[in-house]
Design a protein around this nucleic acid. Structure first.
Lengths: 150, 150
DNA sequence: GTATTATAAGACATAATAGTCTTATATCTT
DNA sequence: AAGATATAAGACTATTATGTCTTATAATAC
């Protein structure tokens, strides 16, 4: 798997927050979000805490609390989310897991993978929450997972 | 992580077998290979059994036994090995883990990821054991992992 | 200020992956 | 045929990833 489940959940949740946020100073309830996306509430909470610590979300406790984007959706990229949750390893590590692999001491697939992972990085960096959630609205794309009991 | 450790070990081992095979009807000792590559013998054995069952390797028990490539190295691609060990999921699954994601019912990053994963597939398919192990010889590329105790 | 609401934090449980060990089986040597 | 050698198969353990639950803390409403 390229991304951890936590990371994909974090992406779906961030898109959901972007989509649901209409007014300023509005927080999206984690409980409601977990219901809508069919993601376990407690697990989602833990993931969102990572995004909060990374400065991508802000949170508010108490009534009308929840999470909100810390900045405009066009300033948040998918790459920001991947790195906040899975870390930067995907974009730096050797495909064959050889430590120290690089142009000086390459592994047998170093060149090809270095270019492929850079393309991946550019793909994630090029997708902001703004244009992705615009796509979601315009094309009625899916965000939620199927119910666990189905 | 893109590939499981088992898969990367399988790749390194296959390259090692390709490199070590000089004569016909020659088998490479798994014990020796595990020493050279610094991969646990028993774990490596289990991985090689998968490659044998997938028809990529053939094995022989007893003295002078071991494993050998089942066909010419130019007829074995990295993709064959990935699919034998990790299965085809990497090249078919949704990046966000949404089941049923496809051009009909796409996830928010479907288009970009579908193209990126196809590039990945082409990369693996384009790298045969023959040209990869040729690179290893010509450029003196590394194959082995560092010793565990270092 | 007190009760209520909702996230934060961390302990705990489960599942998947990674790694180890033992026994069985096939092959070779003599 | 008997003993030695090397892989096959499967049980077992350890580690990491995933998921759940309980308690603490902050914000709001009254």
């Amino acid at each position: 798997m390229v991304l951890s489940k936590a990371c994909t959940y974090g992406m779906l949740a961030s898109l959901y927050v972007a989509k649901e946020t209409t007014r300023e100073n509005e927080y999206v309830s984690i409980r409601l979000m977990s219901d809508e996306l069919n993601i376990s509430f407690h697990f989602l909470t833990k993931i969102l805490q990572k995004l909060t610590k990374a400065g991508i979300l802000i949170s508010l406790k108490g009534p009308n609390g929840g999470v909100a984007l810390s900045r405009a959706p066009k300033l948040i990229t998918m790459l920001d989310i991947v790195i906040a949750i899975d870390g930067p390893n995907l974009f730096t590590e050797c495909l064959l897991g050889l430590p120290g692999c690089g142009s000086q001491k390459p592994c047998p697939v170093h060149e090809k993978w270095a270019s492929a992972r850079e393309d991946l990085r550019i793909m994630f960096q090029g997708k902001t929450l703004a244009d992705t959630s615009h796509d979601v609205e315009a094309l009625n794309l899916r965000l939620s997972l199927p119910k666990a009991d189905s």
